[in-house]
Amino acid sequence: MAQQGKQQSVMDRISRTQEMVYEMTVGEVMASKMVTVRPDHTMAEFRVLLRDNKISGTPVVQDGRLVGMISIEDLISALTDNALHALVGDRMKKKVECLYTDELLVHCIAKFSKLGYRRYPVLNRDNELVGIVTKSSIVEGLLRKLEIEYERSETKENSAPPRPTMRKFFEDVFADEISFTFKYNVVGQSLKHAGKAASELKNVLKNLGICPPLLRRIGVATYEAEINLASYTQGGEIRAQVEKWGVTVEAVDNGPGIPDVEKALQPGYSTAPDWVRELGFGAGMGLVNIQKCSDEMVLKSTVPDGTHLTMRFYYTT
């Protein structure tokens, strides 16, 4: 069991790492101590610099401004051209791909795989060179953060780090329309599996970065809706749609429908059979809870066709 617990914690940390790339900025993983060269240095001087510092490239800086990047590849081509006395300024790459300190790590990683450079200079928004990012600085940054969080969770169970909001995620993704849809089938006439959909959905939303209080509200409302499907219908479906503004959860069934919707919404009103009551539900609080937890609720029902419950949750209310 200890082994399993360990595996779980490794899995947790892997998914946590995936989340972190959406939370951390380039500024948090860059190395701010760096070696630079001036454009009026020679390639021979640059070679010594690489050797002494055990690095494979540096930014080229003049009067505090980034003017280019130069790497071991440029040195090799200078060696081939027998041009060790040439100036760095003449052999450097002038068209430079930069990153900014406040950019999200996810963009930075995308740049690495898209452009194939091994290091990127980092500028602040005043266009001053403040650091450099390499693959190893990213890994180190992530490890550092994981270590801090791990220590924190070890010492105090309750102080989990705040998760990024869903809104932030959508700000980083560009498309005319973005949504995620999740669908779960719910078995009717049995509470045995009821709650599974709510639990799975909550888990998915947690991984997407929805904040805990909203997560709880969505979880509770979905759970109650699922209990209703399981208690009163022949089965149905829970559908969740995650969008830029919030989350919609629908519970849809094929009957028998609710004869008096208004009455069904009254606290304490219940038509629950005894078997449901003995299992801890059916106190006539389900729809009341759903109403309380959701920002918007629409309940449409026709006898005997079925019921369509729509619940909406906004990221901020």
């Binding site: 509470l191 045995k192 009821a194 709650g195 599974k196 709510a198 639990s199 909550k202 805990p212 709880r216 979880g219 509770v220 759970y223 299992l279 801890g280 539900f281």
Partner: peptide
């Protein structure tokens, strides 16, 4: 039953 634990999970 399982609903006691489900509820705990959902309600944190």
């Amino acid at each position: 039953n399982i609903q006691a634990v489900r509820t705990a999970d959902i309600a944190d």
